[in-house]
Every structure is written in C-alpha cells, then in structure tokens.
Design a protein around this nucleic acid. Structure first.
Length: 296
DNA sequence: AAAGCCCTCAACCGCCAGATG
DNA sequence: GCATCTGGCGGTTGAGGGCTT
C-alpha cells in the first residue's frame, strides 16, 4: 500500500459520528446520481475510509454503508473490495502446493463453485481461486490440447498432477525436516488434515472406487482411488514409489501411501483415453508443462 | 530502446435467490 | 402474491507489468 501523509491518514480515520445516525435512519440519504459514482481502481484514501468504517460499524448493508461512509461507490463495489482485498484475515501470495492440491480435488468434485471451494482454503477468496484456475490450470489444459472439462484432463489432474503435487509437498516437508524436524510434521499434518477434514465433511465413509470424479456433493471421495492398473510410466520419473525416496512418520506415511498407490499403478496415456495426443513427445511436453506449473 | 505480446488479477457485470415491506 | 432491495455468485474485462523479439 502506498504511503500517504500521517495527517491525511488521521483525518481519514476520523469517523464522523453522523454515520451512526445514517445507518440507523429509516431513510438513508438518497442515492447519488449514477454519474457521481466512482469506478475503477480503488485509491488508498477510499480503502482507508472503507476499512475504518467497517472497523467501527461492521459489515453488511453495503449500499447504506457506501452512502454513510461517504464513498462514491456502489455497495457491491465496497463489498467486493472488502472481501477480496481489505479483509484482515486474507492470505496473500503464492498458492501453495497443498492449496493447489485442494483446489484441484475440490474442483473435480464441485466444478466452478468457487465460493464453495474457497471455504476450504482459509484466507483465500473465490476470486483468487477462480483467477488461479483460469490463468494456470486452463492454460495448461490448452497447452495439452485438452478441454479443461474433459474426462481426459480430469484424469491427467487426478493421476498425474495431483500425485506430483503430493510428491512436491513431501519433498518440501523433508527438506524442511532437515533444518527443522517439526516443520516437516506440521507441513504434512496440515496437508493430511485438510484431506481428512474434507473426507469427513463430504463423505463420512469414503469408498474406494475405480470410477473417476464427479461433481456431485454426495458422491464418494475419489481422491484415494487407484487408476486402472496395468502399465505405468517407466521413465524413472514416477516409477519409483515415494517411500523409496523418503521416509516419514506414520501419519505422514498414511497420507503418502494413498498417493503412492497412484504412483505405482499409474496408467498409460492410452488408458486415459488421449488418442489425439502426440504420444511420442507428449511425456516430455507434459512434464515441461507440469514443472512450469509446479514452480509457479 | 521500443514495440508487441502475454499474463495476472482487481474490478465490474449480469443474473439469481432470499429477505423484506 | 407482488415489487423491491440486498447480497452472493460465476463469468468477463481491461489495466498494468513483465517478457520477448
């Protein structure tokens, strides 16, 4: 946030007592002419006014709030600015691998229900998740010449990208453990905990199934289901089980075991029904794309 | 150096559902 | 039952910054 003069800040933070009366009044001041309303990027001053007003009076009744706070913005605009940018409990910055994993899984189940997905990612907004999906995930689907809503792409996510994300989480946890043993446990615990919560909340007794994800709320969690098990990648990239490379405590291992099933029994691209792909260069292409994605 | 392209994300829009009078 | 208001949601847009040529 840009710095502005302290005098300006204090004057902006000074709440006019009349605003209380404004909100309580049965007939708030009439809505300004539409031409009076500001649009576009919010200024620091507007942010301060909004933050200060909500701190004092709380959220809700956004149209009245906008009027009473003296903001020449629509109530909707104020609400959006607060929820997506100013709220103190927001997490900002890169989406972590754990969060990516959750987003992929939840999207496979619920589709574009961004707000619902966001509820499972504390501090993240639906807008942020939606943007992440559109800019990252859809981009890679496009690069793979895949429709993002196709079963093929869902299978790729489930059986290739998600296990790779888990591998990344485990690797991160292990490297952290070398410096701080507690960090590893915390990282893996948090990832595991998220999935445990998810399983409990959405499917009290998850059933292993070989069918792939569904958007229905009531459908069993598919996260742990192994794919069709015949051939697997043998290029050394994912042929090894995670356990061969790392070791961790029991709880972490339970989390990883579920995924290593997918690792050791990964199906071929043909099994995923991707006849249109250039199978010769696809593996290289895929991992290039995926590595870029993971590094973001 | 500059023009063009690409990517990200804040902000807006339209629609809908629920609440209220 | 109807009209209006309000909040929430998903889709879309466009400004701005970074990258490439």
């Amino acid at each position: 946030m840009d710095l502005i003069g302290s005098e300006t800040i204090s004057s902006l933070l000074e709440v006019d007592g009349s605003t209380d009366a404004c909100l309580k009044s049965p007939t708030p001041p009439s809505i300004e002419d539409d031409s009076d309303l500001r649009r576009g990027p919010w200024t620091v001053e507007e942010d301060l006014v909004l933050m200060n007003y909500i701190t004092t009076h709380g959220e809700g009744r956004w149209n009245s709030l906008a009027r009473c706070a003296g903001l020449k913005r629509t109530g909707k605009s104020c609400r959006l600015r607060w929820l997506n940018y100013l709220r103190p409990d927001l997490r900002r910055g890169n989406i972590t691998p754990q969060e990516q994993l959750l987003i992929l899984e939840l999207h496979s189940r619920w589709g574009n229900r961004w707000s619902k997905i966001a509820q499972h990612l504390p501090g993240r907004t639906d807008n942020e998740i939606k943007n992440y999906w559109r800019t990252r995930v859809q981009k890679h689907a496009k690069q793979l010449k895949c429709d993002v809503n196709s079963q093929q792409f869902k299978d790729i996510m489930r059986y290739l990208w998600m296990p790779r994300l888990v591998e990344r989480i485990q690797a991160d946890a292990n490297s952290s453990a070398k410096m701080d043993p507690h960090a590893s446990i915390l990282t893996m615990d948090s990832a595991n905990h998220e999935f445990e919560n998810m399983n409990q909340n959405l499917n009290p007794s998850p059933e292993i199934s070989t069918t792939t994800g569904s958007s229905s709320d009531s459908v069993g969690v598919q996260l742990w289901s192994p794919p069709v098990s015949n051939s697997c990648f043998t290029d050394g990239c994912i042929g090894q089980t995670v356990e061969q490379q790392y070791s961790y405590n029991t709880q972490e291992a339970q989390f990883a075991d579920s995924w290593s099933d997918s690792f050791t029994s990964l199906c071929s691209y043909n099994d995923l029904g991707l006849p249109d792909f250039d199978m010769g260069g696809l593996a290289d292409n895929f991992w290039n794309v995926e590595d870029i994605w993971l590094s973001q």
